[in-house]
Amino acid sequence: MYERLLGACALGGLMAASSAMAADKVAYQLDWLPGGDKAPIYVCIEQGFCEAEGLEVTIVPGRGSTDAISRLAAGSSDIGMADIGALLAAKAQEGVGVTAVMSVFNTGPHAFYTLAGSGFDSVAGARGRTIATSPFTSSNVYLPLVLEEVGIAEDDITLIKADPGALGPMLMTGRADGIIAWMTDLTRYGNQAAEAGKKIVALPWSEAGLELYSASLIASDGFLAERPDVAARFVRAFRASVAFCRENPEEAAASVAALVPELGAEDVTGSLKDALPLIFNEVTDANGLGTFDADRLAATWARVAQAQGLDAAAFDPETAVARSYLPES
């Protein structure tokens, strides 16, 4: 009896050890703090998509796309999320060792948020307004482009910079006519406005003609070279998780809240639902989930080069992406 128990224990230990041996460890780099818009990776872990592909994933929060890219380049994380515009600029200028393997937000999340009834109800209405933005958001880079798109000179608006946490209150208290924020934060700002008895209007820049790829799955070149099979399995699991988020947003939000209890499930659901239109839209319908369309990629690079004053001809954006990791569909 005793020996059998011992044997069972040994067997169990062996199985645990072998399954731990079998699972490939992957460090996933977020481009920002946890949130509903980052739901796919939490779904991947919590709903078993990662495990099904034999992956053991740890999540590392980041502080912006540049931070995420430098950590991937340094090899402290294997794969993660970052803005492809930041990636293109970093590769063109410094040739960092990272490559985009899947597009996630195939349209820009940048937007003006204004208060209903203020008369500021289109991107073109920004003329003569005071706009608040946070100092480090990538949106600032694209602002001149979207203004040019609607025929406004940069001098025609007053731009003030403040901590991201202060933007909402500044809008509610009338210190700013509009703020620059991402479409993924619509629910959060909406709730904050509701507390002040006001209503938010979002004016996405994509509607004003700023068409570009944005948040993408980006991998360290070392990871791709040393463990290409793991990378392919990860992209497959991630893509399945993204699809799951679309079908079951509530369950996806519950997965995030289970792993990050600091986030309430309600807030997570809100920001996930805000993020889904950036992932699934007419571009997705035309090209498929996760793909990089060569024309759209070239257009994105042209925008980034223009915004950052880089020579567009000196760099081929195709060298920044690898399409081979996406499952055939």
Binding site: L33, G35, P61, P164, G165, Y189, E262, D267
Partner: peptide, 24 residues
């Protein structure tokens, strides 16, 4: 923790502010 962390009171504050959970 504001610059890089997966846990910690500073990280907690940052996550809370980023979600507009000011009381938290």
């Amino acid at each position: 923790e504001f610059c890089a962390a997966e846990a910690g009171v500073g990280y907690f504050i940052q996550v809370s502010t980023s979600l507009f959970k000011l009381p938290q």
